[in-house]
Design a protein around this nucleic acid. Structure first.
Lengths: 76, 76
DNA sequence: TGACTTTATACCTTAACGGGTATAAAATGA
DNA sequence: TCATTTTATACCCGTTAAGGTATAAAGTCA
């Protein structure tokens, strides 16, 4: 539990859009397995693939102050 | 030029600490080649390795609203 | 309870990342 | 100008991410 809330962010955003993992993977242009690894908190994912997913939500990977990523839980 | 300012963020922070790429790679526990790829803007880097570097600056990877990553340029 | 949908895990192959090394280029200083 | 330091690029190899497929587990609904 390394506080990897990227996984919950993706999961929450996906559900908010009413998408299944399969639909999200198709829209993002990544494999279904990748979406599952992402939502399961795999830490060694490649940034460009993660960004393909985040882009669907209007987000992208960036450097954020450690222990402040909680701010993302506010609505965009 | 995909506005990958993660590279300039790392480069700037590294210089601010007066470190060479080699010193940074040693402190972060990653290869020198990785630090160079990172500062050159390689987009397919693995998140866990990038986080090893960002941790030295008190930062980590997180989802940020697209086109808002400029806010990171403020001092922590 | 049972069908169906969705998600999680395992196996396998291909492609490429990470990293070491060597070399070249650029920057710094005298 | 020439040394030294630092950074950038290329080559090679071991490891592993990505993704497809299959199977199992979990959730949903009647």
């Amino acid at each position: 539990m390394e506080e990897n809330n990227l996984q919950s962010f993706v999961k929450e955003r996906r559900k908010r859009l009413g998408l299944t993992q399969e639909e999200l993977s198709f829209k993002a242009g990544v494999g279904l397995r990748f979406v599952r690894d992402l939502e399961q908190g795999k830490s060694s994912l490649q940034m460009n693939k993660v960004n393909q997913v985040l882009k669907l939500f209007g987000y992208e990977l960036g450097a954020v102050p450690a222990n402040r990523e909680d701010l993302l839980h506010e609505e965009g």
